[in-house]
Write a protein that binds this DNA or RNA. Structure first.
Lengths: 213, 213
DNA sequence: CATAAATTCAAACAACTGTTTAAAACGAGT
DNA sequence: ACTCGTTTTAAACAGTTGTTTGAATTTATG
């Protein structure tokens, strides 16, 4: 009978949804296994521990998304010799939205997961990301640097982290914000609308005149 | 004998430090009472529950900070009839930094608390803030609106939340970021340096050309 | 000093957490 | 049909959580 999906996948699917909604530490293995309709012990059997489950959930997205972004950056580099900030940041849009075709609500889930991952346990996942996807990160930073030459390395560092914060925060609260937008402004805004509004914001922020003091 | 501070204050002092560092749900009452050198049960005796302790910790700051900001906004309004975005956002700097005189590391603690409060339990604290300090929020929004007249209410809503995200995220990770800045760029940046870097970023982001599609 | 109220304290509570165990069920391969 | 490795299962484990209890203690009041 019954469960179309093998256990391991059912766990991943249930976990990513709960992690995105409630955060990592606020989601219990019992909740995950109940939603996935599998036995409690199967998480530790298949993944070893909760921590490794978290990493597996994130990795399933990142290993598709990050190379995709990396390639899009290279393509942009090939098209125009010196792209603007808005073009560089705009590179994120298509790969991120493409996740919705890979999995239902994939875009929302990944971005909420990223937000959770960054605020819940900063050091651990940060290290994982840099060691696995550092090369893409480097080419991205180099392109931003080139598009905003007035910024020294330190200014750039801070502004890129501000941008990350903007992104991450908007995504962790995207559900609530979209609700408010619908009720207060009678505007039905989906996740791609949010992303397309963030890009000009970030671009202008990073491109602001350099700060001296 | 002994403890200079009364129990209630010792709990608040220890709690705010731990909440800022580890977040609300990751901080246990046992840890708080151990740091405060008081009995475990005294939290429930003096505050009723952990949830009310969280609110008390935040309220101690907000009831000073928000009226202070409100007054600074009014003063700015009196000085110049139509202030720029950077001037409006700049209003936050002095009151926030003033917290450092009220309590050691007060600025960092409050801002980290705000970050925690927003990402950990979105609905609850949001409601509390709006019902208690909604008037200051309203005058602030009106001034931003006036300084960026090209934005309609919806655009403004999104960009202000992006700004909030920038702020909050930068603060929750401020410790880590300042560490990196010291090691990688040999720059010793304190919390006021971070704030003064955020203001131009936010100002430029909110003031970016309106987005149409 | 005696009485009453406010506070502190150690202990226990009930509920929850991630993890482990050992037996049961399952699914090929021969 | 039997065996062997894989997977699932229910149960228990050991630890933590916020909260409550009732007695001991301190503090203030008459």
């Amino acid at each position: 009978m019954a469960n179309a999906q093998p256990t391991k996948l059912r766990i991943l699917d249930a976990a990513e949804e709960l992690f995105a909604e409630y955060g990592f530490s606020e989601t219990s293995l019992r909740q995950i296994t109940k939603d996935a309709e599998v036995n409690l012990a199967s998480v530790n059997y298949h993944f070893g521990s909760k921590k490794e489950l978290i990493r597996a959930v994130l990795e399933r997205y990142l290993k598709i998304l990050v190379p995709d972004i990396g390639q899009a950056l290279l393509e942009l580099n090939r098209r125009t010799s010196s792209p603007t900030l808005e073009e560089v940041f705009g590179v994120f849009v298509r790969p991120i939205l493409a996740l919705d075709r890979q999995r239902k609500n994939g875009t929302r889930i990944l971005l909420q997961l990223l937000g959770r991952g960054y605020t819940d346990s900063q050091g651990h996942l940060r290290w994982f990301f840099i060691t696995h996807y550092g090369d893409v990160l480097d080419t991205f930073i180099a392109m931003v640097q080139k598009a905003a030459p007035q910024l020294n390395k330190s200014e750039l560092f801070w502004r890129l982290h501000f941008s990350l914060g903007t992104f991450v925060f908007a995504m962790t609260s995207s559900d609530a914000l979209m609700d408010i937008s619908r009720v207060d402004f009678d505007e039905e805004i989906a996740i791609d609308g949010v992303i397309k509004r963030i890009i000009p914001f970030i671009s202008a922020g990073v491109g602001a005149p350099a700060h001296n003091c």
